[in-house]
Measured scan of single mutants.
Amino acid sequence: SEEELIEKAEKLRKEFEFIWNGIRFIIRENADEIRRFEELLKE
């Protein structure tokens, strides 16, 4: 039914948001290391 689809979509959206926030947190935490690594690659 349509309601089930909406519920599934909402659940997926929440899971995606949770994963995305996790990725963003990891990137933020490691931003300095990532930048340093990029500098090494440029040399």
Rank of each mutant, 00 (worst) to 15 (best):
S1T: 04
S1I: 13
S1D: 09
S1E: 08
S1K: 07
S1V: 09
S1H: 06
S1P: 08
S1R: 10
S1L: 08
E2K: 11
E2A: 11
E2H: 09
E2S: 13
E2F: 12
E2T: 11
E2Q: 08
E2P: 07
E2M: 13
E2L: 12
E2N: 08
E2V: 12
E3K: 10
E3Q: 07
E3C: 15
E3H: 11
E3F: 09
E3W: 12
E3G: 08
E4C: 15
E4W: 11
E4S: 08
E4A: 11
E4T: 08
E4G: 11
E4L: 06
E4Y: 05
E4R: 08
L5R: 04
L5F: 06
L5D: 05
L5I: 07
L5P: 03
L5V: 07
L5T: 06
L5G: 04
L5Q: 05
I6N: 04
I6M: 07
I6G: 03
I6E: 06
I6S: 07
I6K: 06
I6Y: 07
I6Q: 04
E7D: 08
E7T: 11
E7A: 11
E7P: 08
E7W: 05
E7R: 11
E7L: 10
E7C: 14
E7G: 07
E7F: 07
E7Y: 07
E7N: 11
K8W: 14
K8Y: 10
K8S: 05
K8Q: 10
K8V: 09
K8P: 07
K8H: 10
K8N: 09
K8E: 06
K8L: 13
K8G: 06
A9G: 04
A9T: 10
A9R: 05
A9L: 14
A9D: 03
A9S: 05
A9K: 08
A9M: 13
A9I: 13
A9Q: 04
A9H: 08
A9E: 06
E10I: 11
E10D: 09
E10M: 11
E10W: 14
E10K: 12
E10P: 06
E10R: 11
E10V: 08
E10N: 08
E10H: 12
K11D: 06
K11W: 10
K11P: 06
K11T: 10
K11H: 05
K11C: 15
K11V: 03
K11Y: 06
K11M: 09
K11F: 11
L12G: 02
L12T: 03
L12V: 06
L12I: 08
L12M: 05
L12K: 04
L12E: 03
L12A: 03
L12N: 04
L12D: 03
L12R: 03
L12C: 14
R13M: 07
R13S: 05
R13W: 14
R13F: 12
R13Q: 11
R13H: 09
R13D: 02
R13N: 03
K14T: 10
K14L: 11
K14A: 07
K14H: 07
K14P: 04
K14Q: 07
K14E: 03
K14M: 09
K14F: 13
K14R: 11
K14C: 13
K14N: 07
K14S: 08
K14V: 11
E15N: 08
E15K: 14
E15P: 08
E15T: 15
E15Y: 15
E15S: 12
E15A: 15
F16A: 01
F16I: 05
F16Q: 01
F16E: 00
F16M: 05
F16R: 01
F16V: 04
F16L: 06
F16Y: 04
E17C: 15
E17W: 14
E17I: 14
E17T: 12
E17R: 11
E17V: 10
E17K: 09
E17L: 13
E17A: 11
E17G: 09
E17H: 08
F18P: 00
F18C: 14
F18I: 06
F18E: 02
F18T: 02
F18G: 01
F18M: 05
F18R: 10
F18D: 01
F18V: 07
F18K: 06
F18W: 13
I19T: 02
I19S: 01
I19A: 01
I19F: 11
I19D: 00
I19H: 03
I19N: 00
I19K: 01
W20H: 00
W20L: 05
W20F: 02
W20N: 00
W20R: 00
W20D: 00
W20T: 00
N21V: 14
N21F: 15
N21M: 13
N21C: 14
N21H: 05
N21G: 03
N21Q: 09
N21R: 13
N21D: 02
G22K: 14
G22N: 09
G22A: 15
G22F: 15
G22H: 13
G22S: 13
G22D: 01
G22Y: 15
I23A: 00
I23V: 04
I23C: 14
I23M: 02
I23L: 10
I23T: 00
I23D: 00
I23S: 00
R24D: 01
R24V: 07
R24G: 02
R24M: 07
R24P: 00
R24L: 06
R24W: 13
R24E: 01
R24H: 01
R24Y: 08
F25Q: 05
F25D: 03
F25N: 03
F25P: 00
F25I: 02
F25S: 02
F25T: 04
F25M: 10
F25Y: 04
F25R: 09
I26V: 02
I26C: 14
I26R: 01
I26P: 00
I26E: 00
I26L: 09
I26M: 05
I26K: 00
I27C: 14
I27A: 02
I27N: 00
I27P: 01
I27W: 11
I27R: 01
I27V: 02
I27Y: 04
R28D: 05
R28T: 05
R28I: 07
R28N: 05
R28E: 05
R28Y: 06
R28P: 03
R28A: 07
E29N: 07
E29A: 14
E29H: 10
E29S: 11
E29M: 14
E29R: 12
E29G: 15
E29V: 14
E29I: 14
N30Y: 15
N30C: 15
N30T: 12
N30G: 12
N30E: 04
N30R: 12
N30Q: 12
N30S: 13
N30V: 15
A31S: 04
A31E: 04
A31F: 11
A31Q: 03
A31Y: 10
A31K: 03
A31R: 06
A31L: 11
A31C: 15
A31G: 04
A31H: 05
D32W: 12
D32P: 08
D32F: 13
D32Y: 11
D32C: 15
D32N: 09
D32S: 10
D32H: 09
D32Q: 09
E33K: 11
E33D: 04
E33H: 11
E33A: 13
E33I: 15
E33L: 15
E33Y: 14
E33T: 13
I34S: 02
I34T: 03
I34C: 14
I34Y: 10
I34V: 02
R35W: 11
R35N: 05
R35A: 08
R35D: 06
R35I: 06
R35K: 09
R35H: 03
R35M: 07
R35S: 05
R35L: 07
R35P: 02
R35Q: 04
R35Y: 07
R36H: 04
R36D: 04
R36V: 03
R36E: 02
R36T: 03
R36M: 07
R36C: 13
R36Q: 05
R36P: 02
R36N: 03
R36Y: 10
R36I: 09
R36G: 03
F37V: 03
F37K: 00
F37C: 14
F37R: 01
F37P: 01
F37G: 02
F37I: 04
F37H: 01
E38I: 14
E38Q: 11
E38K: 10
E38N: 06
E38Y: 15
E38D: 04
E38G: 09
E38T: 13
E38C: 15
E38W: 14
E38H: 12
E39Y: 09
E39T: 08
E39I: 13
E39M: 07
E39P: 01
E39H: 08
E39N: 04
E39F: 12
E39L: 10
L40I: 07
L40C: 14
L40F: 08
L40H: 03
L40G: 02
L40Y: 07
L40D: 01
L40M: 07
L41G: 01
L41N: 01
L41W: 13
L41F: 10
L41S: 02
L41E: 03
L41V: 05
L41P: 01
K42T: 06
K42V: 03
K42W: 13
K42N: 05
K42L: 10
K42E: 03
K42H: 09
K42R: 10
K42S: 08
K42M: 10
K42A: 10
E43L: 11
E43S: 09
E43F: 13
E43N: 12
E43K: 07
E43P: 06
E43D: 08
E43M: 11
